[in-house]
Design a protein around this nucleic acid. Sequence first.
DNA 1: CATTATTGTCTCATTTTGTTACAATAATAC
DNA 2: GTATTATTGTAACAAAATGAGACAATAATG
Lengths: 266, 266
Amino acid sequence: MRFCSLFEKNTSLNTKKSEAYFRREDYIENLSYDSVIFGFNGKQLKILILEYHNTSLFALPGGFVRRNENLDEAVKRGLKERTGLQHIYLEQFHTFGSKGRSDPQAMKRILEANRHNRREHEWMLDRFLTVAYYALINYDEVNPQPDEFSDSINWYPIDELPPLMMDHREIVEKALQTLRDNLEKKLVGMNLLPAKFTMKQLQQVYEAILGEKLRRTSFQRRLLGMDILERHEKLYQGRAHKAPYLYSFRLNDMNDIEQSITLLNK
Amino acid sequence: MRFCSLFEKNTSLNTKKSEAYFRREDYIENLSYDSVIFGFNGKQLKILILEYHNTSLFALPGGFVRRNENLDEAVKRGLKERTGLQHIYLEQFHTFGSKGRSDPQAMKRILEANRHNRREHEWMLDRFLTVAYYALINYDEVNPQPDEFSDSINWYPIDELPPLMMDHREIVEKALQTLRDNLEKKLVGMNLLPAKFTMKQLQQVYEAILGEKLRRTSFQRRLLGMDILERHEKLYQGRAHKAPYLYSFRLNDMNDIEQSITLLNK
DNA sequence: CATTATTGTCTCATTTTGTTACAATAATAC
DNA sequence: GTATTATTGTAACAAAATGAGACAATAATG
């Protein structure tokens, strides 16, 4: 049995059977990353949360940075493990570095619950600073893998989160705040919706992020006025009313708009 | 002679005379901070830049984080050393973690130029991730101390920076971008001006940050309409025209506005 | 074919911003 | 004193953006 995926599937494990562990010397010390992975199911904004088996401890998916890899790439790597998706929209938003933020007790419980409370993992009980990222993914394309190493991962609506360990709650709050601040600037909707979507869907994304209702007519006029949407065929939903048009984001003349787009983010 | 203030006055130096050095074990490894310290001289936006003696290497003031201190406090500590000011407006904006961002060659030159190329400092040649902060200070209240340990520190206008080492240029660019994005939200002007200022001064701060001219009447009407300014006595400048009023930021009913204020930042 | 809910768009009121104009005023020059 | 000067505060109007409501078009349903 290999070490539980505390933070990631470790593809550079020490390979001797039953001796696999995170080798301290492979990673930057006292530094981790955590990711707040947002998805939108059509109604609610949700976040991927890990649960460590036999501990009732919930946490954000995170990991460590290898000595020979870029910080950004470490996070992308972790995200690919978790969601199977590459080229995800990803943005760093804060680094949390209070000296009291780590919780050696909880970490110990996790290690023990997975029978990995060996000397080689003691470094994980030390203080950690963590660089936090948020990711925006298309909910429908993702199958969060109930992790092979004894922990589970699930979607939780942002207003129904379980109690999170350490300062992960604070991290989520700050992620959400940043998302709100960036809503217009970074065309957030683009990364939470399928390629083609109705105006109503787009409005629902905005409402879910802002946490407030928007006026339909003003919203529609404003978004169309921004000249970033392309109109496509109608969508016949089989329901008794006028069929809405489908739209997509126009990727051409985005001179002004910050190019923080999945496609350009590769 | 003590170790040059590579990044800060080290107040926890190993105390044996002529053996003083940054002890590796006192600090979080592979992690530093850098600060982009903005000041406004009435016309231009400026930044504090260090020059390492005998190297012609220019850099942002930075430092290391002690194992037993908060990240934020490490930065405040460094800032106090540099400017003599406490309770500075300070904001973290990004963590830079490319694996290639460190420059061991340059670091070696700095250490050698100060005769500190000893074994105990070899860890400084390793890879470093850096958490970047920007600070806003009242230019007039600050005497950047030409550092006792052989390096100098000076104000440079943001559009006349010397060539900076490593990725410090990129760090400055990002700091400026963040400052622009936060201009309205965080009442930046408050921290770059004296307590009382004229409308013209305030406008000049805005213009220096945005890098563009603003319409006087619109600016004045908008700022007054925000209801955050308090009007005081007139300022007689001894010049042949109508005397402007002095204003200050109103610190009372700032419910809406994010409380990112020097005074509250203590 | 009438009913129904939803969508796209129009209109008008309200608010915000751009632009111009102008009176008030401190010093200076005479 | 008094005219001159540059700057400031504010008013006035135009243009643009947003709020609020109305309404016709239209897919399904019964």
